[in-house]
Design a protein around this nucleic acid. Sequence first.
DNA 1: TTGTTCACG
DNA 2: GACGTACGTGAACAAA
Length: 934
Amino acid sequence: MTSDAPVFGKGCHLHLIDGSAFIFRAYHALPPLTRKSDGLPVGAVAGFCNMLWKYVTDEHGSDAPTHAAVIFDHSAKTFRNEIYDLYKANRPELPEDLRPQFPLTRHATRAFNIACIEIEGYEADDIIATLACQARKAGGSATIISSDKDLMQLVGDGVDMLDPIKARLIGPDEVREKFGVGPDRVVDVQALAGDSVDNVPGAPGIGIKTAAQLIEEYGDLETLLARADEIKQPKRRQTLIDHAEQIRVSKRLVQLDCDTPLDFTLESLEVRDPEPEALLGFLAEMEFRTLTARVAERLGAEAPAVEAAPPSHAPAAPDLPGIDAAGYERVSDMAALTAWITAIREAGHVAIDTETTGLDEMQAGIVGISLSVRPGAACYVPVGHVAGSGDLFGSSALVEGQLPLDEVLAALKPVLEDPAILKIGQNLKYDWKILARHGIRMAPLADTMLMSYALNAGTHNHGMDELAERYLGHKCIPIKELIGSGKAQIGFAQVAIDKAVPYAAEDAEVTLRLWQHFAPMLPAEKVTTVYETLERPLVPVLAEMEMAGIRVDGDTLKRMSNAFAQKMAQLEDEIHGLAGEKFNVGSPKQLGEILFDKMGLAGGKTGKTGAYSTSADVLEDLAVEHDLAARVLDWRQVSKLKSTYTDALQGHVNPDTGRVHTSYSIAGAQTGRLASTDPNLQNIPVRSEDGRRIREAFVAAPGYRLVSLDYSQIELRILAHVADIPALKQAFRDGIDIHAMTASQMFGVPVEGMDPMIRRQAKAINFGVIYGISGFGLSRNLRIPRAEAQAFIDTYFERFPEIRAYMDATVAGAKEDGAVRTLFGRRINTPGINQSGPAAGGARRAAINAPIQGAAADIIRRAMIRMPAAIAHLPARMLLQVHDELVFEVEEGAVEDLIAAARRVMEAAAEPAVRLSVPLVVDAGSGANWAEAH
DNA sequence: TTGTTCACG
DNA sequence: GACGTACGTGAACAAA
């Protein structure tokens, strides 16, 4: 406490600056600047400093402060969340380039020599309220520099507000203008009207106007609620009676707390002049050239040099020290780890990577954790390295000089879960799941793989080694140098620690550098929204789905496998008999020789290898006359079902959970679709009756049901919207059979009583259009002459000319920009579009298809991201995604509620970003297993 | 490791 | 006039 400062009292004037509001305004008002030397995002800091500088150089007239402070929100969770858990729950996640700037704005405030205040568990508004009350009580006055309406309840009796944008003073009259009541009744009005921004519920259907009128009439909120039955309007009366409790909760939410515990006095906030050295030092460190010069001039000090450096997105930033794997630190004791944690808090971000005993996140153990806070500063914390693989039983004695895993995790947990510290990773879903199994749920996240995907989909893949080489000009240590390959491969736990340190720490540093490299490119390439709304938020959602897994009945699979084995043996005998010799039915080469050389059937060779094609297409033609081909087709189907599904799936059942846990790759497909691996649960059979039965093995836990919801015709609906095809849009609005409508338009036949063959042809054309149709492709698909197929297509384009226009425009755009975009802004690069020759056709079709397939992928991503909050109140979990289908597991009694909630989310998933001109329709089903639910 | 085949949307 | 052709995936197996 400062004992020498004069006592705060009459004649003293306190300025309370709403720091968080300053930051957000600065962030949104300025382009995303980055520090030249290393790419650190500093746009909000720059704006914040400019605003503070403007503030301190302002004369303030008669309002000049004797005391001042900048007040910040400490973290997202406050005591209000205990009153109402959904308070501020609908706030969009912070842009990731803003979060690391928070600590810098605190530094900036101190550099300006202004008191910097934040208190855990309290909002800035409560601290401001407390200070304003204390100033008033002490006989002084206060001005709150903010335009936040929530602070207006404090106005009056020596307290006023200053709107820093409009430079307008807000007194009791202005508050009355805004709320229709005086400052002392503002909370009553807010409690009734609610606030959608902060998610304060209020009374449904009552806005500020009505609320003010009611409060004016009845005096205050409690009187109003007590006398609610006197209200004349029946609906309004009922609303107040029904929601009385909710309104009281709302009042507690909006009522600011004037009793925030403070560990400082008003006196300590006395205005001080900035110290030139500290302020200029900070500004120069941030590399704010103009502001540094301006401040230096005003303060009569010499401006420190602001280092000039080339922009950070040049490949292999030459101003940075090279990546030096030899210089990394091995962390072996708590003191060293604590020092790193301090450095992380200081930086506001950390790049993290975990090394594990295996690649299956559901089973792998942690071997070590690497961290990096800036280029040149990275470490590796080994925790699970074991002595060499010398003895036969795989000695598992831990190597000396490692911290215990639980101590390391306990120390890191507060940092990894701190909402003010950004966790940066490459494919963070992996590390997220590993840490989640140890009770740590990392947030917030930045993922360099996803940044690259948003920027570079279609151009190259997004693995770290490739990104490091392309964008940092750095070749990473290959993992093979540590663990070997093939039969002699060892686990990471067996790698010597002194070899693991450079490898692991390098991964963290490379990730950090990639983040710095990509961060400014997202806004420059206009993919920030894609990254922020479709990529980054999906990580924890998918991680939870994958950890949930789906129950698979191993016994059922085993029975099926046995039945399939029998059938295969039987078919094999038949095939050998028909061929007149024994051969490997699974060998296309041997089969081709039997069919085309020995039996002399008609059939061609394929290009590269010169081998005969024996694909289903070819065999189906032969099967008309030759039983051998028909039997081989049967054998292949059974063999596929057995080897890929009934056999393989049994091996994927996790012994701990009894469930199958797939892994989704977010950045695998070019179009924005997910891909499922280990095992692939997006291609479980459904089209054939035998195959479909495999879905009976995917079951709900006892007491639960599986629920499947899928979008009906989503790609055609998107086509109708983006290509703006009136006939198609109207058909979707009317809810009529789209393929029958197409057939009717093309062939002039009525929808009623239509020949199923005609409808089937129209359906094939509708799909073909999405894929970039050709006469050849359609003729093969429908098994009709090519001329006939071409005639269909011509008719189709005549009836729906907008489709050709759309295709031409899409291809032209791809040639112009080297990329196409979905409705939601996802960019898919089309590097091959200007090729000539046979490849050109493929690139053209891919460019036509990508915006449609991609938009559908965007829509279901949006639904998935919103889903956890939308079903949080139900005993249900989202388990699987199959491109246009979501599968849930839900308690028996809640099936209908789940379907209603999930359908609502899915059907509205495009909004508000895109207002589709066709409805999205979702079909739903439920059952004890996936076959029943689908 | 590469190519073929086939499961899905 | 010829060239090749539906779009997007992953896994298993044979063959090199």
